[in-house]
Each structure stands twice: as C-alpha cells, then as structure tokens.
Design a protein around this nucleic acid. Structure first.
Lengths: 242, 242
DNA sequence: GTAGGCATGTACCGATGATATCGGCATGTT
DNA sequence: AACATGCCGATATCATCGGTACATGCCTAC
C-alpha cells in the first residue's frame, strides 16, 4: 500500500498543517512554505503530492468535507424522523459548520464552480441525496435541482452574511428565519404522496390523478402514452428502496 | 481642487484600469504592476494614491457601487409604487448586478466585514434606507436590522450559488423563488407565492424521484422517455408570473 | 536666482508560487 | 551479491508579486 491515510502519511500531515495555518492566520498565512515548514517538509513536497497549490486547496476542502460529515453524523445520529425535519437538521449542520469555521468553509465553497473538484462533488452529492429523498416522499414543491440550489443559496448567504456582520449586530434569529424561509420555499405543506407507501406506484397514481386534460408541456399523443405507462406503474406495486 | 474625479484624473484612470483587468482576467490579473501599466503609470503611483492594495480594492469597490447606483437609478426610474414592489425591484437590481459582474460584485462584497470600508458603508446605507421606508409603511414583519440581513443574505447567496452552478444547470427560477421567499420572510403580506401549488408538477417530481433504475413495467426506452416527460411536467409549475 | 517642497521614475527588498537538479534509499532484477 | 531503476527528500533557483527607499526632476516661493 503506497500512500494511504495512515494517520501520519505525508499527505495528511500537510493537509492538517494547512488547515491549521488557514484557520489560525487566514488564507494568506497558508503559503506553501509555511505549510511545508509546519508539516516538517520541504516546499517541493507539496507540489509532488498535490501538483499545485490549487491541488492543496482541493485536498484541504476534501478534508473539510470529511470533518463536516463526521460532525454531521455525530449530530444527526439520533434519527432522521421525517424528511422535512431531516432537511432542517442538515441545513442547520451546514450553517453551523460554516459559522464556526469560516476560512475552511470559504475554501470548501470556493472549490465549486469551474472544473472537477472531487471534494465539492461529494458535498453536492449528499445534498442531492437528501433532496432526492425529499422528492421521493412527495414533499418537494419545486424541481429537485432547483430545490438543491435554494438550499445551497440560503446556506451560503446566511453564512456569508453572518461573517460580514460586525459581531455585535449578529442575530441568531437570522439563522432560524432563513431556515424556515428555505423550508417554506422548498417543501409543500403536505406531502403529495402518502407517506405510508413508497416507490413509484403511489407517485404514479398521484400523477395520473393530477394529470390535467391538457397540460401545456406534453402533446396529446405523449399524454396518452404517459397515461398508459402510469397505469402500468401504478399497478406494478411499489418496490420499496433500501 | 486637489484630486477630483475630472474624468481622467489619475485616480479614475487607475481604478478603471483595475476594474477592466479584474473583469477580464480575474482577481489574479489585477496586479499592481499590471494596473499601473494599463493606466500608463508606474507601480508606486498606486501606493501614493491609494496607500495600499486594499486601498485600491476599496476604491474599486466604491467605483462599483457608483456604477451600481447609476444602473439602479436607470432601472428604478419609472417609479417606486409601493414599498414591497420597491423591495423586489431593489433586490432584483442587486442580484442582476451581481450576476452580470461577478468579480466586481465579489470585491464589493468582500470589503465588508472588519473595518471601515466607506464603499460598503454606502451600500449598506441604501439598503437600510429602503428597509426603513418599508418599516415606516408598516410592512416589516421583523426587526429592521434582521430584515436588512435577510435581504443581504438571500442576495449574496443567490449570486454566489448562481456563479457556482455550471451554467447549463442554472435556472432563472432560482432568482424569482428566492426573491419571493425573501419578501415573504421580511414583509407581512400574504404568502407571496401565489397558491399552494397543485396539479401534476409535484406528483411528477415525486414519481421521477421514486422511479427505480429498472422497473419491470417499462422498457428502457420507455423509461427514458418517461423521465424526460416527467422533467417537463415537473418544471412546468411554480414560477410566479413576472 | 536660489532654496524648498512635491510629484515622478528607478531601483530594490522580502516573500510567494513553482521548478530544475542533485543525492540517497529502497526495491527489483540478473 | 552486484547492479540498475525509480521514487522520495533537499538545495538552489526563477519569475513575479506587494511594498518601499532613494534619487531625479519640476514648479513654486522668497
């Protein structure tokens, strides 16, 4: 086994030193030399291991996601009762993480846009997973993708605003207000699909029932075929997911 | 008159060159030397005029606020009818500015937190002014300060999320949904989202989420086409009219 | 005419991100 | 057992960055 995270692999040492410097002295303090020195290595080691400073930042972000997932698991351990409450808890966890660890959160958020960013991929993955579960239970009032973006936007915004506000004017109510606002924007008052059942069958029944005579989105032929499929799905009996 | 903005004062030349470089090549392209060269001056001139690179950034932010106010005045010229609509328009203007000029917006947002930042002060000033007018008309459902922070958070969040989303997944509905959500959180009007959404859209979303990879009831091709239709149906609802 | 600011221009400093190059050490082969 | 190979660490170095000291010049004041 060549390079594995055996608690003191060079990679891990460097990343942890980088996080330490980042959170103690801001982004400027996380220079390649300082990181290398703090990890007891030479500057080129960083480039050999991470290729680039952006590579280091990505590794730092990934480390942050790992720590976040750990804290989340510890906090959400009791049980995710209903999906909406799970959404609240998840959002709170993210925001709390962003509030308590500003620099790391900033790095994690920055790695997003342009290219790959395996770390941020993982973050979005869990978010979309949560949204998907919400959708499966019939709670979503908007598209899945849009719901995920709403959650992301409110979280990002509240954290950024929190840190941009001069400490003495910070109001914890901001967090709860925006959370509830986000829940209201994403979820419906009641699930569109009965909670008791799961799988495609009940959703298919609900959709078939809700299908108007002429939805603008589909042609007559499409609509007809869709209705037929829905009938098949509705009768096929739900395959409950794991 | 010592140093006034006489359309080609050194200050203005430098700031405009800085903005140009910032928006064309990202923050890294805005080096002191590049700015000085682009403005036809020597590097030390920047430090004489702005004292610091942060000084330059602040001046850039102030320039951005000036341009923003200009565009705002042009856009809000018709008339601010009622305060809530004024809030919508103002928020839209900010978000539109942030969407269309990412780098400049980032610089303007960054200058916030810690110390003075005359530029950002001005920005907060107009925001608080709008909120105050809202409060005076009796529309606020929360504290003025909290309202301002809600507005700020939603705006910041939506802009950040917009730019963090891979272009092809961007959904303009995000802007309107979050705007209405913010209006609902800030004002005591009726639930600004028109109606508890009904019809096929939510059911379609639920079904799409619940659709297994391989339901025995449909063939692969059918399943694929069904997913496409469901996406169309899922997106057909929810966007409030302009 | 001369002396004193004051802005400009040159040269420079330390630090940064990034790389080339060298030496050692383990490994794997013959 | 001797040799070759490839990987890991260390030193030295490069170009550029933000920032500054110093000298030069010009205009003004006496």
């Amino acid at each position: 086994m060549p390079t594995r995270d055996t608690t003191d692999s060079p990679r891990r040492r460097i990343v942890e030193a980088a996080v330490e410097l980042l959170e103690s002295g801001g982004p400027d303090a996380m220079s390649t030399r300082a990181v290398a020195a703090a990890a007891g290595m030479q500057p080129p080691a960083i480039y050999r291991l991470f290729g680039d400073k952006d590579g280091l930042l990505e590794a730092v972000a990934e480390h942050g996601y790992a720590q976040f997932l750990e804290s989340k698991r510890a906090r959400l351990n009791p049980a995710p009762e209903d999906p909406v409450e799970e959404l609240r808890r998840g959002w709170d966890t993210v925001v709390e993480f962003g509030v308590s660890r500003p620099e790391l959160f900033a790095v994690m958020s920055r790695a997003t846009g342009s290219e790959a960013g395996a770390a941020h991929r993982a973050g979005l993955e869990i978010l979309h997973g949560r949204v998907r579960r919400l959708a499966a239970a019939g709670w979503l009032r908007v598209d899945e993708e849009l719901a995920a973006q709403i959650i992301q936007a409110t979280g990002l915004g509240v954290v950024a605003t929190w840190h941009a506000t001069p400490a003495e004017r910070r109001d914890p109510a901001l967090l709860t207000v925006l959370r509830e606002s986000m829940v209201a924007a994403v979820t419906r008052a009641e699930p569109a699909v009965p909670a008791a059942e799961s799988g495609p069958a009940p959703a298919a029944r609900a959709l078939r029932a809700a299908l108007p005579d002429d939805s603008g989105a589909l042609s007559d032929a499409e609509q007809h075929l869709l209705a037929e499929w829905l009938t098949r799905l509705a009768g096929s009996g739900g395959t409950p997911p794991a």
